[in-house]
Each structure stands twice: as C-alpha cells, then as structure tokens.
C-alpha cells in the first residue's frame, strides 16, 4: 500500500489540490514519502498520524513555504493569497508590545498592505472577528497577557479577517480546554458550510471522528486516505505506529525514485 494511490476525489466534485508522487523533507531526508492524492474544493480534511509522521511538513508544503524534493503539488485556480495558514503556537513572540486588536487587524494585510489605512470597514470587521471568537472586551490587551486559550482564539480571529478560501491549521487545539475547542470547532464548521476548504493536523481521534468527514492518516507515507471512519480503523492506526518506528536514520538513496 505504501506510496500507492490513496485517494481520489469522486466524480462531480472539483479538485482544489492535486498531489502527484510528492516527497517532502529536509536535507534529502524525506519526512513525507511518495504521496499521491487529491483534495476537493470545500473539503473538511483532518491529517492524523504519530509524532514525526510528517504532518506539519506536509502542511508547510501545502502553504507553499516548502518546496517538494520530488513530485508535483498543485493548487487549482488559486494563488498564495487564497491560503491562510495557522502554524503551531510556539513561533509567536509574545513579549512584543502589540494589542489584540492590532494583531487581529494583521489579517487584513491582503487589502491594506504596506501603507493602506485600516478603514472603518476593516475596523468593524476586526471587531466582528474578535467578537466571533468570544474575545470582545480584550481588544486593547497586550498579547503577552493572554492565556493560551485566548491566544488561540485571537489567532482564529485573524484567520476570520483573512477571509481565505483555503485554511491550513497545524494542531489548532493542542493544550486547549473543552470549551475553547468547542467554540473553535464551531467556527471551523461555519467555514465548511461557507464552502471553504479546511485542512487541519490533529491528534485527537475522537474529535476527528466527530467533526471531520475525511481523514489522511500519515506515517511518513500514506497509510490510508478517505472517509474518516474507515481511515481510522484499528488496523490502520497500528500500521501507522509501526511505520514511523521503523524510520531508518542512515537511509540509502531511495530506490523508488521515478
């Protein structure tokens, strides 16, 4: 199965993303190996797998920040501007003196750019986005004073501001309580209804089974990709664990290079 064709979008749905034998990695060591498949426009997809399975690497490549080592990865009818990417929380400098409002307003970049003023409409949109994630009243707080949950809500508000057709979320619910997770899942469901394509890296299988119709189970190679209930079978999960543990540090040049 590994490296083979895992998923193709059924007839009648338009393809948003086509992956053709994609290999991703750093310094020639592949983190994701020979991945082929496609993602439909408006799909709500979870990417699951053990630590080191290449989930974040795949998301990075989907966002355009990482060039594939091999194969083709092509978004259909969309540019980098249509993609909003939420990386893991650790990369944000929380000591920087900036308010919640300004941070959320950053999401307006594609319209306001270098010099454009944040006009009345963008201002209202910022307040609305902050309200949508339940942070009303905290607009003037510095980001360093926010709790972990409030921080993630703020970043979701910025995603709302970006108003992108495709949303990539890297472990968006890690270390969040049930209440916050529920609110943010509600927002994701709304995005799904609006026809946006949402792709999220997640660890909580129960949450994925409840809220995500489709799943890609990754263990450096595609283990299974398709309907969530079938993909997350006990057999597939066991295989995923086994495949990552077998990772070879002194790997030879891959014989499967086309």
């Amino acid at each position: 199965m590994g490296g083979g064709v895992c998923s193709f979008v059924g007839g009648g749905m338009s393809v948003a993303l086509q992956l053709n034998d994609v290999t991703l990695g750093y310094e020639r060591h592949p983190a994701v190996h020979h991945l082929t498949g496609s993602i439909a426009r408006g799909e709500l997809l979870a990417i699951c797998g053990p630590n080191g399975a290449g989930k974040s690497t795949l998301l990075k490549a989907l966002s355009g920040a990482l060039e594939p080592l091999g194969g083709q990865l092509a978004w259909q009818d969309c540019t980098a501007r249509d993609i909003a990417f939420l990386p893991q929380m650790v990369e944000i400098d929380r000591s920087f003196p900036i308010t919640v409002f300004d941070m959320v307003a950053m999401g307006d970049w594609q319209r306001s750019g270098l010099f454009g003023s944040i006009g009345r409409r963008a201002k209202q949109a910022t307040f609305d986005a902050i309200a949508r994630v339940g942070l009303t009243g905290l607009e003037d707080r510095l980001i360093g004073t926010l709790s972990g949950g409030q921080m993630q809500r703020m970043l979701f508000a910025r995603l709302v501001m970006q108003d992108a057709a495709i949303l990539l979320l890297d472990e968006p619910f890690t270390a969040l309580d049930a209440n916050t997770t529920e609110d943010l899942l509600d927002l994701i469901a709304q995005w799904h209804q609006q026809g946006r394509t949402v792709i999220a890296v997640l660890h909580d299988f129960d949450l994925v089974r409840q809220h995500f119709p489709r799943t890609l189970l990754l263990a450096r190679e595609c283990v299974a990709w398709g309907d969530t209930q079938e993909t997350l079978s006990a057999l597939n999960l066991a295989q995923a664990r086994h495949m990552v543990e077998a990772f070879d540090r002194d790997a030879m040049i891959c014989a499967r290079v086309a």
Binding site: I98, M106, Q110
Partner: peptide
C-alpha cells in the same frame, strides 16, 4: 522605517504569518 513598519513588526512577532501572506 515608515515603509518597513508593518512587515518588520509582523516579522518580529510572527514570521511564519508574514511568510504565508507575503513570501
């Protein structure tokens, strides 16, 4: 500095965000 203000601030706080909206 006026021209660089937004990208510099954004790059300082959240480099991956700036990279995703304007590589």
């Amino acid at each position: 500095l006026a021209a660089l203000y937004r990208p510099l601030v954004m790059e300082t706080i959240d480099p991956s965000f700036l990279n995703s909206v304007r590589p």
